[in-house]
């Protein structure tokens, strides 16, 4: 495979560094433009196996609020985002729910948990 250069925008934080990735024979050979190690890690992943954190909400029973916000504890493959949403929308949590509580142990077969990002006390 020939050398290939990809231009990316880092999504690690709101700085949004412009990254340049050199790929040779499917291997990442050089990453530039990043201001921190997260940028390099993102660039490598983005050209080989792009992933995202998915955030959404889940219904709560018996809580002071009807919904609790959630996120995937780690990033999941981009291709699994909509399967992940389907699973998340089937879940109902029981109050009390606290930040970090697991509301779904394995989302869309990724082995990644979905955790609460807000506290909802029972009423």
């Amino acid at each position: 495979m020939a050398k290939e250069i990809k231009e990316l925008t880092c999504i690690g934080c709101p700085l949004g560094c412009a990254l340049t990735v050199e790929i040779d024979g499917g291997e990442v050979v050089k990453i530039s433009g990043n201001t921190c190690p997260r940028g390099a890690a993102y660039a490598e992943k983005e050209v080989t196996n792009p992933t995202r954190i998915v955030t959404s909400t889940v219904k709560v029973e018996g809580g002071e609020k009807a919904f609790v916000s959630v996120k995937t504890k780690e990033d999941i493959p981009k291709s699994k985002i909509f399967d992940c949403m389907k699973d998340i929308n089937k879940v109902t949590a029981k109050a009390p729910v606290h930040i970090g509580d697991v509301v779904l142990a394995d989302v869309a077969g990724t082995k990644v948990a979905v955790v609460a990002t807000k506290n909802v006390e029972a009423v």
């Binding site: 690690g12 934080c13 954190i53 955030t55 916000s69 996120k71 930040i99 990002t117 807000k118 506290n119």
Partner: peptide, 10 residues
């Protein structure tokens, strides 16, 4: 670390 809005507020 990377947090969601409610976690940051929390």
């Amino acid at each position: 670390e990377e947090l969601t809005g409610p976690e940051y507020a929390g």
